[in-house]
Nucleic acid binder design. Structure first.
Lengths: 142, 142
DNA sequence: TTACTTCCTCTAGCGACTATAGGAGCAAGC
DNA sequence: GCTTGCTCCTATAGTCGCTAGAGGAAGTAA
């Protein structure tokens, strides 16, 4: 119950967010500035740890800082509608699906590259060919 | 056969690489500096278009500039072994597969978030719940 | 006291662009 | 020739999300 004081190094260890990154999050206002000790050291508490963990997880999931800011604000106003949080997550889901599709196409192409490249002793290396040809025939598709 | 002169704007339109980005690529030595007109305008040719398309495609596929530099160098010394290009492609293939796996996990999680969002209040919203809970239970795993 | 670690601030750097300012060139219409 | 409007030029600074380094102060253990 008492406010256990947590140093920045402790916080880093417990949340997996690096020390300079914690300071950076404070600087950009993602994490509130904690009180300081007599010696000017940051004094975090459990709530800060939660917030940091939340931020870290959201970042890992690919949310950008703007999104996280919104999500944090929402989570601090728990009686408000979750429509916004939902739409942030939806938007993100669509982005992730697009990225997966693109990467799968890429994987196919890379696979083809290494397959073709590996077999020719005359080294008709297709790596560059594949990329160039593909590039040209796709000029107007995107 | 004659060297058709292509302006930077034309090049941008044809390759889908933005004008400032083309200049940037020239600056970092990814694209050779083209000759200039009397009025100091860049004069690109077909070969530059290929190169730009190649670069764009490779960037879309997630190659970083260093890789592209290597691949371009290899493509310009075609008698050299394709072993290097092959290993670049291999390295990248593994990376891409890892990325796909990560994104698929992420998609599942996001999907769950939005599925479970009851469209009620934030206090019941899974988007925030998932982020918070997950964050806490994963503190030490990474 | 000494040594060691952790912490502080501040500044600069990364990659891969993107934006802005302030001009100069060029082609078409009058 | 002149004006309008577009494209182009350079140079510099900003973006995002950190990360690294310098140079120093504070806390801790022997």
């Amino acid at each position: 119950m008492s406010a256990r004081v947590i140093s920045i190094g402790e916080a880093a260890r417990q949340t997996g967010v690096k020390v300079p990154t914690i300071r950076f999050y404070e600087q950009i206002g993602l994490l509130p500035s904690p009180p300081r000790s007599d010696g000017n050291r940051r004094q975090f508490d459990e709530k800060d740890l939660s917030r940091l963990s939340f931020i870290r997880h959201a970042r890992e999931l690919g949310f950008e800082v703007g999104d996280i800011r919104e999500l944090l604000a929402l989570s601090e106003a728990p009686q408000s509608s979750c429509h916004e949080a939902d739409s942030i997550a939806w938007r993100h889901l669509r982005e992730v699906e697009a990225r997966i599709a693109k990467l799968q196409a890429l994987r196919g192409e890379l696979q083809r590259m290494v397959d073709e490249c590996g077999h020719g002793k005359v080294c008709e290396c297709q790596v560059i060919q594949v990329l160039t040809d593909h590039a040209r025939c796709r000029n107007e598709t995107h």
